[in-house]
Design a protein around this nucleic acid. Structure first.
Length: 477
RNA sequence: GGCGCGGUAGCCAAGUGGUAAGGCAGAGGUCUGCAAAACCUUUAUUCGGCGGUUCGAUCCCGCCCCGCGCCUCCA
């Protein structure tokens, strides 16, 4: 089965190929840098990361642009409150965002584009719209007139034909001609940053930045445009109206939207006290891999119930895979290759691919990996797994990890957490090995008191020993 | 009201017109000096409720109940 995505525009599962047959051109709505990004934001960004990785796995090139909205009402208000310029204010949160993204192992898009660095492109987009008669101005602001775009509503599947034009509705402190019209250029107000333009001093509306930048970097028709479900209307609808009014071509062939997440079955909100930024969770001692795993393990179109029990389960699931990886690489095996085990690895990869191809069904893909792991653990127990099968297992885990990317322990974070939570990071590998050897000697001499003492001491330092038939393995807890 | 999504074991969560993947937790076992860790086995006669279509429905249709999202802040 080919790679298929659910397209919000057509409400159908559609086979995906890039328009040019080689490179997928993707635009995703990035952060508005007025605060630290929360775990809900990262659900969407993790989905987009999985999307990137799977497209690449399927052999397509990637040209992915993501905007950083660094001028908007909240930014202006917050910056003013702190007595900072918007540049100073947003620089902090932009930096924080990419630090967070890195700890979740989110790949950086090929183009990260800041709104404030693309004002001229937005101005010329608005000029083109004006030239086509799609705009009007009111009290110094310029608006897009949705009556000028017949397809308005096709993405959100809303019928706006009944909207009365001419009704004046006061919204967002600006006057519009029609309830659904939206602002392209906001009139300058006292003490606010502004740019000069042919239609007066002011600043861009939110929607135009995405249209202008997407087309500048990726061309008139994108392959994929993605974001959270809440952006379907009005943001993405408005992007379509702007872009297609300019080009008369489809703005994006595929529209993919990720569902929101809930915290402990409740909507995340500050008043409920269940509002978590990524940094909050890391400070609580949760590993970035566990968070990434949890965010990625629920298929993106399904609401994700983010719970602390689920976070623990995610951490345990990763541990199971790492244990398997360690077992395979650390076990002495006879030369040869058991065909049954080899066949199971091919089957696992096939099922993994099938799941991912089916609109990024990560739950199904994960099941393929775990079924394989269980089968191979049994095969190892029963001696039906030989030297060459190591490579089969490595391949399965490699395929899994090029999408999920959770097998390698995080470096800086885990060291930092270890240092905070105790002395776990204090022992070097050589020291641990020395203790393990000493304990083995003590056991041989049937000095169990000393052996247990060492075991307990290591456990206190977060080192867990595994006595197996062949040898003693250890791992950091 | 309009548009849309969902209700599957203690929790998270796949799935198919022919009788329920996977993970976590729980229980049992293997291993072990004891333990831990690891590994294995096991856990839904049943898929919100009631009807209908069908030889057969969790999966199709209708109605109902419950939860959620969007309908000019928002991943």
């Amino acid at each position: 089965m080919p790679l298929r995505f659910y397209n919000t525009l057509t409400q159908e599962l559609e086979e995906f190929h890039p328009l040019d047959g080689k490179t997928a051109r993707i635009y995703t709505c990035g952060p508005t840098v007025y605060n630290f990004a929360h775990i809900g934001n990262f659900r969407a960004f993790t989905f987009e990361d999985i999307l990137r990785r799977w497209l690449r796995y399927r052999g397509w090139g990637l040209k992915h642009a993501m905007n950083v909205t660094d001028v908007d009402d909240k930014i202006i208000a917050n910056a003013a409150k702190q007595g900072k310029t918007i540049e100073e204010y947003t620089a902090n949160y932009t930096k924080a965002f990419f630090e967070d993204a890195a700890s979740l192992r989110l790949e950086t898009p090929e183009y990260v584009v800041k709104a404030t660095a693309h004002i001229p492109a937005m101005v010329s987009a608005i000029e083109e719209l004006a030239a086509k008669g799609c705009t009007y101005s009111s009290e110094g602001s310029t608006y897009f007139q949705i009556a000028a775009f017949p397809g308005y509503g096709k993405l959100s599947h809303n019928d706006f034909s009944g909207i009365r034009s001419g009704a004046r509705v006061d919204v967002d402190e600006y006057e519009k001609g029609d309830a659904r019209d939206f602002v392209l250029w906001k009139a300058h107000k006292e003490n606010e940053p502004y740019w000069d333009s042919p239609f007066g001093k002011g600043r861009p509306g939110w929607h135009i930045e995405c249209s202008a930048m997407a087309m500048q970097y990726l061309g008139e028709t994108l392959d994929i445009h993605a974001g959270g479900v809440d952006l379907i209307f009005p943001h993405h609808e408005n992007e379509i109206a702007q872009s297609e009014s300019i080009t008369a071509k489809p703005f994006s062939r595929f529209w993919l939207h990720s569902e929101h997440l809930h915290i402990e079955s409740q909507k995340m909100s500050k008043s409920l006290g269940n509002f978590y930024t990524l940094r909050d969770l890391l400070d609580m001692g949760h590993s970035p891999e566990a968070i990434r795993y949890l965010l990625a393990s629920v298929p993106y179109r399904k609401k994700l119930n983010f719970t602390f029990e689920g976070l623990k389960a995610a951490a345990k699931s990763i541990e199971r895979l790492r244990d398997f990886e360690a077992r395979v690489s650390g076990t002495k095996l006879p030369a040869g290759r058991v065909e049954e085990a080899a066949e199971r690895s091919r089957e696992a990869i096939r099922q993994f691919e099938e799941g991912m191809d089916d609109d990024l069904n990560t739950a199904e893909a994960l099941a393929a990996v775990f079924e394989y792991v269980r089968a191979m653990n049994t095969a190892l127990d029963e001696g039906r797994f030989e030297e060459e099968n190591r490579w089969d297992a490595a391949r399965v885990l490699e395929v899994f990890d090029c999408v999920f990317d959770v097998l390698k322990p995080s470096g800086a974070e885990s060291v930092r957490q270890g240092a905070e939570s105790g002395e776990a990071a204090a022992l070097t590998e050589a020291e641990i090995e020395a203790y393990v050897d000493e304990r083995a000697q003590a056991k041989k001499a049937r000095n169990f008191a000393r052996a247990d003492e060492i075991r307990g001491m290591l456990l206190d330092k977060g080192i867990v020993l595994e006595d197996t038939k062949e040898r003693v393995r250890w791992k950091r807890k």
